[in-house]
Amino acid sequence: MKRFHIHTHVEDLQKNIVFYSAMFGAEPTRVESDYAKWMLDDPRINFAISTRGSKHGIDHLGIQTDTEEELAELKSQAESADLSLHDSGETTCCYARSDKHWLTDPQGIAWEHFHTLDSIPVFSEQENAAAVTSACCPAPKPQGKPLAIPVKSSCC
C-alpha cells in the first residue's frame, strides 16, 4: 500500500509541532532538532516538517511505497508515460535511507517516489552536509531532487 508524502519548511519547529499534533490528533513519530514527521494511517500520509529550507512552505510532494515492487511499478508507470525522471537510487535524507526517484510536474513541483529502507541517526549522510540546502537535495549535484526538469509531452 502506498502513503502520500508532504514535506514543508517551517520557521519555528516547536510551534508547528504543537499545531500539527493538535490538527492530526497525534504526536509525531519522529522528532529531531530540525525535523518532525507524522506517519498517519487516517489519512494515510507521511507528513514531515523541517527548518532546513531557505523558503517556508511546501518543499516537495511524494508517494512512499511499502515495497520495492510498488516503487518499481511507479517508476515503470512514469517511464511508460514518457515523463522525465531522475533516479537517485539508494540515498539518504530526512533521517532515512531510501531508494527513490524524482519527477517534476509542469509547475516545477518536485515529486518523490520512494521506499524507505532504514532509519539513520543524521539528517543526511552526504559527504558535505553543509551543502544540503533543502529537505532532501544537496546543492547542484547529480543526486537529489531535480528542479524544473521538463515533463515530456505531446499534448497541447
Rank of each mutant, 00 (worst) to 15 (best):
F4E: 03
H5R: 10
H7A: 06
H9E: 08
K15I: 01
F19H: 12
F19Q: 08
S21E: 06
G25Q: 06
G25T: 05
A26K: 11
E27Y: 03
R30C: 01
V31K: 00
S33F: 06
D34I: 00
D34N: 08
D34V: 01
Y35N: 00
K37C: 11
K37W: 01
W38R: 00
W38M: 03
W38K: 01
D41R: 06
D41V: 01
D42I: 09
I45W: 15
F47A: 00
A48E: 03
I49M: 03
I49Y: 04
T51V: 07
T51G: 01
T51L: 04
G53A: 07
H56R: 12
H56Y: 07
H56S: 04
H56K: 10
G57Y: 09
D59G: 03
H60N: 04
L61Q: 06
G62T: 01
Q64M: 14
D66P: 03
E69L: 14
E70C: 07
L71E: 03
A72S: 14
A72F: 11
A72L: 15
E73C: 08
L74H: 15
K75M: 09
A78I: 02
E79P: 02
S80P: 00
A81P: 03
D87N: 12
D87K: 07
S88E: 11
G89N: 12
E90F: 11
T92M: 07
C93F: 13
C94M: 06
Y95H: 11
A96I: 00
A96V: 05
A96T: 08
R97L: 08
R97Y: 01
D99K: 14
K100F: 04
K100D: 15
H101W: 06
W102F: 15
L103T: 02
T104W: 00
D105P: 08
D105M: 05
P106Y: 05
Q107R: 05
G108V: 09
I109A: 12
E112I: 07
F114W: 10
H115Q: 12
H115S: 10
T116F: 01
D118R: 11
I120M: 07
P121I: 13
V122R: 10
V122H: 11
F123K: 07
S124E: 05
S124G: 10
E125T: 15
Q126W: 13
N128H: 13
N128K: 12
A130D: 14
A130K: 10
A130W: 09
A131S: 13
A131L: 13
T133V: 14
S134E: 02
S134M: 08
A135C: 15
C136R: 00
C136W: 01
C137A: 14
C137E: 08
A139D: 11
Q143T: 15
G144M: 08
K145C: 07
L147R: 12
A148C: 03
A148T: 02
P150K: 11
V151W: 07
S153K: 10
